[in-house]
Amino acid sequence: MARKEYAFYPGCSSQKGASASNYLTSVESMCKTLDVKMTEIPDWNCCGASISYAESGELPRLVMNARNFALAEQNLPGQDIVATCAACWLGSRESKERLEHSSVLMADTNTALKEAGLNLKVIPEVRHMVEVLIEDLGYDELAKPVKKPLDGMKFAGYVGCQTNRPFGIAGESFENPMYLDKLVESVGGTATQFDQKVTCCGGALAFSEPDKAQAQIKDIIEAAYDSGAEMLVTPCPLCQANTEVYQGQINKKYGTKFNMPVLYYSQLMTLAYGGTAKEAALDGNVIKARKLEEFAAK
């Protein structure tokens, strides 16, 4: 039996061929080393993310999340739900909080769930993957399996918004959370003094109003270079995509020469645990992390 078991909510962007598929691959490799068993919630659905607010309304959005809760409770009783995506985690946790605070919304939710043959009694705990790493395992345990420390490599820990606000990681501040820096250091890397670590990447506005979002992304990448970082590391799929894939467009618009790889913490951990470039899904990075590719091949 595995050391820890969780009901896994991978989310839409983690699926095969989707924008954060490399996140999932590296999380699977990382969990294998750490002996953490993640069982996918059968037939899980989209959380609605923040951006659906105008079309969804409140109850339909809550009901979407409640369906995942009911499926987890029914199929994986007693297990905490763990999300790797910041938006999935936030959407689910927010829904849990609202439903537990309002008997009216809870009753309406169950009336709607009945249409899908489901019923919700107890809402499982909803947690982010980094909470599991930090709280259930701890930095010392995370450092134990390190075979190849990321010596001499400098990372700007980009926490972003939704893994940090409004819930965040227990014991961390909203303005200067340290957990990502500590994760980097626990696998031997160096975390730089990065002053844009909790700045918003523009979120969904990267699609609807790219100029506004790209202005924010520019500030983030610039600060990462200023801090002396070679790479950015993040726990959020949208932060990752937004800060990585628009660097070319930003260069055209602002005359900058950005070319900074953007990694997931799980990719760094997989490599430090001796994983291959494939296991860390380095092939999923649009801006190639050459230094890490060479490191993995050694």
Binding site: K16, N22, D43, N45, V63
Partner: peptide, 29 residues
Amino acid sequence: AKRLNPMEAVGGGHKCKDIKGIHAMLAKA
């Protein structure tokens, strides 16, 4: 980088099994 699958445009793509149940549940909500 295999993070965008053009086949999703033509009927590929990920789906839930109980789409019917989801639609009924959302209509009620």
